[in-house]
Design a protein around this nucleic acid. Structure first.
Lengths: 199, 199
DNA sequence: CATAATACCGAATGAGCATTCGAAGTTCGT
DNA sequence: ACGAACTTCGAATGCTCATTCGGTATTATG
């Protein structure tokens, strides 16, 4: 992998192209699977020769890591401020969070599918610590929010752990059936989920 | 792949060993991923040489198909009779179904994890039609049950499609966190899910 | 025990694949 | 328009891995 260009004008083009690679990769990986996708296939998708990809990424796996970071980091960043204020009604807060979350999943379907399919490598690989801790922080945030809602009686569930897993399961699963031009908007879907949890 | 033994006495031993292979494969595939697992690794897990596996399976992919069949077929077979009687209260019926379903997922954690991780090949591969239609039949059954419950006011949700996906998401996600000696039994988990859907 | 059926071994095969790298093409700043 | 910085090419490299197969060990049966 080459270093990114130092001149700022070129840096912009470089970043754009790199982003194209990530997006194409997310698409192909989601469709054919990470391991089944050859670098050649991916390169053709981008419209580049195989070797050219290594100008933007050091390895196929780094590209995969990038896809996961691109999914989790902005999500965490957008949701963290939403749950920071502990004086707001937890039910309202949860609705806001889930709306944002579902929205994010729907606009990053491919990223999400890849993230789910590659669970095994994420959970065990050494260079995946970053992704793992981000995901843990995210889940912790949701769990805290649920806990607050449970204590205040603003939410209906018996066990916080079950509620958390239910929520994680349903929201993340959305990536597998949501269609951009489908009957339901991300917000409607999100509200459907939240309505299961509020009395 | 050799034909299974014709003599019945040997057939039993053959079947047992084949089952050992499937179970070992489910475990390794769930941990390391299907593509990342070499048949050498898998063979060592079974305590056999690599070539020996081909006595029981024609290819690595057939083994994967077998894992998925072993997950879906018995599940469908056990749930079909439960939903057949349309005079029973849908809420009770749903509880029975989800209990069985969660139980099945928990006793087939590895199978389920593999099934999820290999979504892409299942959805696109030619020899996967069988698995795909079984899954569709299963989802259709659940959807019908939810529909009945919605019409009769026995369940609380606005949109049947959202409820279905929520349920699929949460139950299947269970495989990713359930631990046999954990605090919660499969039945408690199942009831937690169902309680979100009944008034 | 003899012999046929079954189970397994393990080295060889051959294809596929990620990655490298020197050269050639392209774009930018001056 | 020229050199430097940057981008891409594409063939070569070297490795990994699924699968094959002829031979050997093990087991059942008469």
């Amino acid at each position: 992998m080459a270093a990114p260009p130092s001149r700022p004008a070129l840096r912009e083009r470089y970043d754009r192209r790199q982003q194209e690679v990530v997006d194409a990769a997310a698409g192909v990986f989601a469709r054919r699977g990470y391991d089944q996708t050859t670098v050649q296939e991916l390169a053709k998708e981008v419209g580049i020769a195989a070797g050219g990809l290594y100008h933007y990424f050091g390895s196929k796996e780094q590209l995969l890591i990038r896809i996961c970071d691109e999914l989790m980091d902005p999500l965490l960043a957008r949701i963290e401020p939403l749950v920071a204020d502990e004086t707001v009604d937890p039910a309202q807060q949860l609705r806001a969070v889930v709306r944002l979350w579902v929205e994010h999943v729907c606009t990053h379907r491919d990223h999400m599918l890849v993230f789910q399919q590659e669970r095994h490598v994420i959970e065990h690989g050494a260079q995946w610590r970053g992704v793992r801790t981000t995901r843990k922080r995210f889940e912790r945030m949701i769990e805290d929010l649920l806990g607050r809602g449970g204590r205040e009686g603003a939410l209906r569930f018996d066990d916080r752990r079950v509620a958390l897993s239910a929520l994680l399961g349903m929201v993340n699963h959305t990536a597998q059936w949501y269609r951009p031009r489908g009957r339901l908007t991300p917000q409607e879907i999100a509200d459907g989920y939240v309505d299961l949890l509020v009395p």
